[in-house]
């Protein structure tokens, strides 16, 4: 019969028992880092400082970053452009626009409402109509993105297809217009 504590008794308790897990984790992390960072350097067994090691593992991953930047350059330029236009508009109007201050204008306000009215009141259904029409035409616009990308590849078929789509929605727009859905009053 084997003593249950045989294995524990065999290895004499030492400080290593307590250090072993930590050393193992440290070693694993260290080796993984080297594998990801600079394998050839690892085999040469050059000693690196922590900063050098971090820099090397970052440099090894740079090609990925470069790929990604190249892939999204267009989107990034467009975002910067949009940001520039938005900021530019605000800055230019605040710089160039005439400034006339009078008492009524300096009062805090919310969309033309007096600030002494309770905000808990019914809203006109006109707002709802505008919002729903916005949502619908927004969804319509979504379909134009893949169409624009594929315009040349789809040829006449795609053109007719989209024409039909626009025609059906055009009927809707005409109806909304004739019915007075676009008039505020």
């Amino acid at each position: 019969m084997i003593d249950k504590n045989y294995w524990l008794g065999y290895i004499r308790p030492s400080i290593y028992q307590y250090l072993a897990p930590f050393t193992t984790i440290q070693l694993t992390v260290y080796l993984w880092g080297f594998k990801a960072g600079c394998p050839e350097e690892f085999f040469r067994r050059k000693k690196y400082t922590k900063t050098e090691f971090l820099f090397n593992s970052f440099a090894a991953k740079l090609p990925f970053l470069k790929d990604m930047l190249e892939q999204y350059t267009g989107a990034a330029i467009m975002l910067l452009f949009a940001l520039g236009i938005a900021c530019g508009m605000v800055t230019m109007t605040s710089l160039l626009g005439p400034k006339r201050h009078f008492a009524d204008k300096m009062e805090p306000f919310e969309c033309g409402e007096s600030q002494l009215v309770s905000p808990h009141q019914r809203f006109s259904v006109k707002f709802y109509l505008v919002a729903v029409l916005f949502v619908l035409f927004d969804i319509e616009a979504i379909f134009f993105f893949p169409w624009a990308v594929l315009f040349k590849r789809l040829g006449l078929f795609g053109f007719v297809e989209m024409l039909l789509f626009i025609l059906i929605l055009g009927v809707g727009l005409l109806y909304v217009w004739k019915r007075g859905g676009l008039d505020w009053e």
């Binding site: 709802y128 109509l129 729903v132 029409l133 619908l136 969804i139 319509e140 059906i168 929605l169 009927v171 809707g172 727009l173 109806y175 909304v176 859905g181």
Partner: peptide, 8 residues
């Protein structure tokens, strides 16, 4: 979308 528009 047309139906939703008319409904609204």
């Amino acid at each position: 979308l047309l139906a939703a528009m008319i409904g609204a």
